[in-house]
Amino acid sequence: MAVIRPEISFSFASDLHIFVGARRRAGFTTVVTDGASTLGHVVESLGVPLTEVGRLLVNGRPVSTAHVPAAGESVEVLPVSRPQRIEGAPLRFLLDVHLGTLARRMRLLGIDTAYESTDIGDPALAARSAAERRVLLSRDRGLLRRREPWAGAYVHSTRPEQQLREILERFAPELAPWERCVSCNGDLVRTTKESVRTELKDGTEDAYDAFAKCAACGQVYWQGAHHARLELIVAQARETVSAARASADETGPAPRKSG
């Protein structure tokens, strides 16, 4: 018996073109499926992680990733709306080994950010995302196409300052600058100079009066020589989040997505 392999027409929004081949970046193109795979499976087989997909329209009608496309259907793949809302748990993040600078900047802003400084492998990262209900951030498309992560997002840029802007624009998280340890993600607690005097470097005791200490790892913080640069990062982050939220207010609430 001959196997029927339906032909489906696909169109990908411009925001998703980075994930698909050049010939699929202009209008609708034909894809031959096996007639049994779900639409979500087909989209991922074409290179697009479902973490980056917002709505799926079949002949103009919204469908879920579980839809099995039939011959002759036209599929439009749209990107995640911004700012993206995550249901089911507080907005927390997990970053892979290649995003260390981004992790420190997110912690500077008070965003709950777990980070693996060593390569623990994709299965372990995905499992931690699921166990702790953290949004997995990575530039590894294969990692984001795994089934285990609770939620995820692809980081497009290789530059930390642009990476941070991407995440702030996409999720518009609540910011609480200077409240997390950039080294371990622990909570910072205000403390007195006297209580940390033995941990201060030469000259620090005389130059500064305000100190904080990480409740988890014990790292001591004060407003050092780089504070002005860090203040600029904080100010720019606040502007980015404010603009993202204002844009959402103008266009209406973004669809909620949990994976």
Rank of each mutant, 00 (worst) to 15 (best):
A2H: 14
V3E: 15
R5Y: 09
E7M: 13
S11C: 14
F12D: 03
S14Q: 15
L16T: 01
G21S: 14
R24C: 12
R25F: 05
A26V: 12
F28R: 08
T29M: 02
T30C: 07
T30E: 13
D34Q: 10
G35P: 09
L39T: 08
G40Q: 09
V43K: 05
V43G: 08
S45V: 05
L46Y: 07
L46H: 05
V48W: 01
V48Y: 03
P49E: 06
L50M: 15
L50Y: 07
R55T: 11
L57I: 03
L57R: 11
V58S: 03
N59R: 07
G60Y: 08
R61H: 13
V63N: 04
T65C: 07
P69R: 04
A70I: 03
S74E: 10
V75Q: 02
E76T: 08
V77Q: 08
P79V: 09
V80T: 13
R82K: 14
R82T: 09
I86K: 04
P90Y: 02
R92S: 12
R92M: 11
F93C: 10
L94S: 02
V97I: 12
L102R: 01
A103G: 02
R104W: 01
R104T: 10
R105N: 11
L109S: 01
G110A: 08
I111M: 10
T113P: 04
T113D: 05
Y115E: 05
T118V: 15
D119I: 01
L125M: 13
A127D: 10
R128G: 05
S129W: 06
A130D: 04
A131F: 06
E132M: 09
R133W: 07
V135C: 07
L137E: 02
S138D: 08
G142N: 09
L143H: 03
P149I: 03
P149W: 01
W150T: 02
A153R: 10
A153I: 00
H156W: 13
H156E: 15
H156S: 14
T158I: 08
E161V: 05
Q163K: 04
Q163N: 04
Q163T: 01
L164K: 00
R165A: 13
R165Y: 00
L168H: 00
E169N: 02
F171H: 02
F171A: 00
P173K: 05
P177M: 04
W178N: 02
C181S: 04
C181D: 02
V182N: 00
D187C: 07
L188Y: 07
K193L: 14
E194A: 15
E194H: 12
E194V: 11
V196L: 07
E199S: 15
L200C: 11
K201E: 15
T204M: 06
T204I: 15
D206L: 10
D206I: 04
D206H: 11
A207T: 09
D209A: 14
A212K: 13
K213A: 11
K213V: 14
C214G: 08
C214T: 07
A216S: 15
C217G: 06
G218T: 11
W222Y: 13
A225V: 10
H226R: 12
A228P: 00
L232K: 12
I233P: 00
V234C: 00
Q236T: 07
T240L: 01
A244Y: 06
A244L: 00
R245C: 06
S247Y: 06
A248V: 03
D249W: 09
E250V: 12
E250S: 15
G252V: 11
P253F: 03
R256E: 15
G259Q: 09
